[in-house]
Design a protein around this nucleic acid. Structure first.
Lengths: 201, 201
DNA sequence: CACTGGTTGGAACGTTCGATCCAGAGTGTC
DNA sequence: GACACTCTGGATCGAACGTTCCAACCAGTG
């Protein structure tokens, strides 16, 4: 598979990365069904042939890889928010505010990289649903780690971390649909309250 | 427009209602883009001509009406949950549990009648986005009323009600995607905590 | 300089989409 | 019985979809 050393001009892997990035961006903005392969190719400055050359599995395979890419990016943002304060309550609230700022800056267009695509394809594109589950689980683990580090009991931390992700997803949905960051800002306040009230070991 | 009294056999309005119901069900399950007019007609035991006869605005108009229908139904379920207990904390928790049971019973297929469709069409079908905003606002008002009735300060109640809707939406998303009702059950617990801690007048 | 193998552009495939059209069925009015 | 009207079944439209195909292209090797 990797028999030949990559002596190429690097255009190869570059094109592949451009395609994934373009796909991730479009999925985040308009979901799976509204995003055509032709449009992806256009946004990535590539031709449809290149898309199918690098992703023989077609749109599905491409979407799965793009979702992994988006999940990693979103995870980094989450980690940044969680690291912004020692106190876990402040940290989780910061995540919601970070999301609110980013979302507003993109004029409510760059939402969660998983939500729309996952909801659209539930039960119909198993690979995508699996990738989405992985992403959500990974994010929950990030939050769980922060909560346990701060002295919250492990069982409570896991459950609370799930609720943090739920709240972020839901508030982002409301904010995008209503084009108003109030839901995310309220979520920040209430997440802080919840974490502060969590039982410590 | 309504010059003639409705002396018909009632088959007219019946077909129309069947179409709306079928559309609402399909939108709830698979969203806007994956739902074709032909499939709607099939599910409603009608012909494509009938769909365009009753909804000259085409798929968009139909989807908007279907979303209003779904919003009303979901609102009734919410009202049922809220009325199931005098204590507002228990009542909101009951809503989450009601959702969890319904969702599980449909094998994670019948989700929120607004979420997927609204997310898919943000910024591209303004009428749908407006209908979704109406639905979310209306649900929030239901929760706000219950909270203020129970002695929670009006400003806190409005904000908290928004968070309740965010949490329900988010937890339902996680539950559907992961095919596991844990997120909704955890949401019930945490929503109860949040409401219990709300400031009273 | 031919040759090889990965990469690309663009045309083309069959299918399905939303939407339109029209002949006719059904019903109530004179 | 003739007419007006709303409603329906099914064929049909052009456009767009995901995908395939193939001829050209290009760098590296002998």
């Amino acid at each position: 598979m990797a028999a030949t050393p990559p002596l190429h001009r690097s255009s190869d892997a570059d094109t592949r990365r451009r395609i994934i990035r373009a796909t991730a961006a479009l999925l985040q903005q308009q979901g799976y069904e509204s995003t055509s392969v032709k449009r992806i190719a256009g946004a990535a400055q590539a031709s449809p042939s290149s898309v199918y050359h690098f992703f023989p599995g077609g749109k599905q395979e491409l979407a799965i890889e793009a979702m992994h890419h988006g999940a990693r990016e979103f995870g980094e943002m989450l980690a940044e928010g969680l690291a912004s304060a020692a106190d876990p309550a402040e940290a989780t609230a910061a995540c919601a505010l970070l999301l609110a700022d980013d979302l507003k800056q993109s004029e409510w267009s760059d939402g969660c990289p998983v939500a729309v695509t996952a909801l659209e394809t539930i039960g119909r594109v198993p690979g995508l649903q699996e990738a989405a589950t992985q992403a959500l689980t990974q994010w929950q683990s990030l939050v769980t780690a922060k909560l346990t580090e701060s002295g919250i009991a492990p069982a409570a931390a896991r459950s609370l971390a799930g609720t943090v992700i739920s709240m972020l997803e839901g508030a982002e949905l409301l904010s995008r649909v209503t084009a108003d960051d109030t839901p995310l800002r309220d979520a920040a306040v209430h997440l802080g309250q919840l974490v502060r009230a969590a039982p410590r070991v």
